[in-house]
């Protein structure tokens, strides 16, 4: 492909924009109480991931990355919300989380610290990467991963927890597309299918929890331990 320098700079800038918005979505997911809002933000994040893959694909003329973008849009922006819609009980979406383990301003501060740490941790790895692939994908992807793990520790509601889980994978991918840009499409498809099965099974499980225990506040599930339960 013959793209001149100016175009590459524009693509690079656009990719940085996508990366910034990706990170913004991750932050917003921590700050949102509504389950429905969380889902919308997750879809947004997945779309920015796809956009970044598309831009990197244009930049390097890599068909694999177009494949990644397409698979991502299809699975995460269309199929996963659809599966959630089918498997989840209706009232889950209208729930708001009142009791998070930490309040939201503190959560956001911690998220900020995690992002800085992500940049710090990825400095040595960045140096090992071919300069033309360097950019913001790796640190921001890693930050997305850490923020997802953080979400898992503070959230108590089942669906946001599941979305946090998927956000970790998004983060891993966001970092991954910058470095592993020639992953076979077969593997790509298999990973996406795996994600769909995960959502389906967890959806069924959440339904079971809701039926049996009467709530989707899975943070309240804490009966199995060594201490004597009074």
């Amino acid at each position: 492909m013959n793209i001149d320098i100016a175009n590459i700079q524009i693509l690079d800038a656009l990719n940085s924009l996508a990366a910034g918005l990706f990170l913004l979505c991750a932050f917003a997911m921590i700050a949102t109480r509504q389950v429905k809002g969380c889902l919308r933000l997750f879809i947004g994040q997945s779309l920015f991931l796809a956009a970044s893959a598309l831009l990197l694909g244009l930049q390097h003329g890599s068909w694999h990355l177009y494949g990644v973008a397409l698979v991502n849009v299809l699975s995460k922006a269309v199929l996963i919300p659809f599966i959630l819609h089918v498997t989840m009980p209706r009232e889950v979406y209208t729930r708001r989380e009142i009791n998070q383990v930490l309040n939201i301003p503190i959560s956001l501060l911690i998220a900020l610290v995690l992002t800085i740490l992500a940049y710090y941790f990825t400095i040595p790895v960045q140096q090992a990467i071919d300069p033309q692939y360097r950019g913001h994908n790796l640190p921001i992807g890693f930050a997305g991963l850490l923020l997802g793990v953080y979400t898992l520790t503070v959230r108590r509601e089942a669906v946001p927890l599941l979305l946090g889980l998927l956000a970790i994978e998004n983060g891993a991918f966001f970092a991954g597309i910058a470095i592993a840009h020639d992953l076979p499409v077969l593997v790509e498809l298999a990973i996406a299918t795996d994600g769909l099965i995960v959502v389906f099974i967890v959806g069924v499980l959440i339904r079971g929890v809701q039926k049996q225990i009467g709530t989707t506040d899975v943070g309240a599930l804490a009966t199995l331990k060594e201490e004597v339960v009074e």
Binding site: I168, A172, G176, A180
Partner: peptide, 9 residues
């Protein structure tokens, strides 16, 4: 999901 990043690396 954490291991996935490792495998991609």
């Amino acid at each position: 999901a954490i291991a996935l990043l490792g495998f991609l690396m």
